[in-house]
Write a protein that binds this DNA or RNA. Structure first.
Lengths: 200, 200
DNA sequence: CCATAACGAAACGATACGTTTCGTTATGGA
DNA sequence: TCCATAACGAAACGTATCGTTTCGTTATGG
C-alpha cells in the first residue's frame, strides 16, 4: 500500500461461469506495483497474486508464463510514444529516444523491460516471446523511419538491420546497467552517428 | 557427466585447517559445466555444489554471491583475446568482435555472460559488481583503442564514451537475444560506423 | 433449473535459498 | 608432541517460490 495502487478490501467473488476482467485488472495493477517497488528480484507470481487478492490459479488462467504477464504490464502503460517523422533521421531518433528514456524513468516500464530481458535469459520460451513478439511490435515504427531514410537515399537498404541494432543496443546497454541518467548527453551524438549517411 | 568435466568419485576430504584449492577448482569446473548444459535457468548453488561433490558452505566460503561465482567462471576461460592495434580502428574492432563472438560461441562464456546480465537485474549488488568491476576490466583494452584514435586525430575525445557504448550495446543485443550467428555479417559495417571520423 | 466454469483460499510435493549442526581430517604454532 | 583451529562433505534446518490440485462458493446462460 505504499503506492496509489491500493487493492480493494472487498473480495472479488465469482461472477459466474466466465472470467472476471476485474481480476485481470487487479493482477496487472499488482504486478506493476510489485515491479515498481521491488524490481525483478521481488517479482514472483506468489507476491503478485497476494497483492492482487487473487488466487494463483487465476493468475495462471490469464497468463501462461511470467514473460507473458511482464509483456502485458509493459503494454498496459500504453505510452503516448511515437517516432517523429521528418527528413532528419538523427533528430527524429533523438527526440524519440529522449521520450523513451523519460518513459522508462517515470513509470515502472524501465524495470519491466529489464525484467523481460532477464526472464529471457532464464527460459528459452521467454526469449522467443521477447524476440518474436515483443521486440517486433516495439520496433515497428522505428524500422519504418529507417526505411524512409533509405527511400530518401540517405542510407542504403542493406544497412537497416545493422543501424537498428546499433540503436537498440545503445538503449539496452544504458537501461540494463541502470545508467539512463548518465547516458543522457550521449543520445544526440549517438543518433547522429547511427543516422549518418552511407558513404560511397 | 555429459561433458569432459567429470568430477572425481573420490571424496575431497579436509586437508587441515586451511582451504582446499581443489574444492575451489572443482566448484568452478562444475559451475562451468552446469552453465554450458543448463544455461542460467539451471544454474543454482545447489546444482553446482551437487555436481562438484562439495558442500554448499564450501561454495559460500569461496564466493559470497552467485554473481561473484559467475564472474570467476567467465574469467577462468582466460580467452587469448587481445584487441589488435593498428591505425585502422574499424578494422581492429571488427577483428576483435569476430574473435569475441567465436569465443562466446565455442565456450560456455556466452551463456555465462548472459547469466551475469540477468543476475544484475535480480540484485542491485550484482549490478554494481557487473558495472564497477566486470565491465571496466573487460573493456580496458577496448577503451585504449578509442583513446589512440583520438590521439591520431580521427575522433574527438568527448565521443569516446558514446562510441564505446554503441560498441558494447551492439554485442550485448546479439548475445542477449541469442542471435550471434545472425548478426555476424553486420559486424564489419557496424564497426565502420562506430569508428567513423568525427565530422566538422 | 442446473451443468458449467471461474473465483479465492489453502494445501500439495518439488526445488532453491542461505545457514547451522555434525563428525572427520590434518595443519601449524605452542 | 600435542591440541586448538578451521576447512571439509553431508545433512538438515526454516523460509520462499514454483506450478498444480482440491475445495466450497458464486452466478451465468443454455
Amino acid at each position: 500500500m505504499t503506492t496509489g495502487d491500493a487493492e480493494p478490501q472487498t473480495r472479488r467473488a465469482s461472477i459466474g461461469a466466465r472470467r472476471n476482467p476485474a481480476s485481470q485488472a487487479a493482477i496487472l495493477s499488482a504486478a506493476r506495483a510489485v515491479l515498481a517497488e521491488e524490481g525483478y528480484g521481488g517479482f514472483s507470481i506468489d507476491a503478485v497474486s497476494r497483492r492482487a487478492g487473487a488466487g494463483k490459479p487465476t493468475v495462471y488462467r490469464w497468463w501462461k508464463t511470467r514473460a507473458d504477464l511482464l509483456m502485458d504490464v509493459y503494454a498496459a502503460e500504453k505510452a503516448a510514444l511515437t517516432v517523429p517523422i521528418t527528413a532528419d533521421l538523427a533528430r527524429d531518433l533523438t527526440v524519440y529516444t529522449e521520450a523513451l528514456w523519460d518513459f522508462w524513468d517515470e513509470t515502472p516500464s524501465g524495470r519491466t523491460f529489464r525484467a523481460l530481458v532477464a526472464e529471457a535469459q532464464d527460459s528459452p520460451e521467454a526469449l522467443d516471446t521477447l524476440r518474436d513478439k515483443f521486440m517486433p511490435e516495439r520496433t515497428r515504427l522505428l524500422r519504418e523511419r529507417f526505411v524512409k531514410a533509405v527511400e530518401r537515399g540517405q542510407i542504403v537498404a542493406a544497412e537497416i538491420e545493422m543501424r537498428l541494432v546499433l540503436y537498440l543496443g545503445f538503449s539496452w546497454y544504458y537501461v540494463l546497467t541502470d545508467r539512463l541518467a548518465e547516458g543522457r548527453a550521449a543520445i544526440a551524438p549517438a543518433m547522429r552517428l547511427i543516422a549518418a549517411p552511407s558513404l560511397r
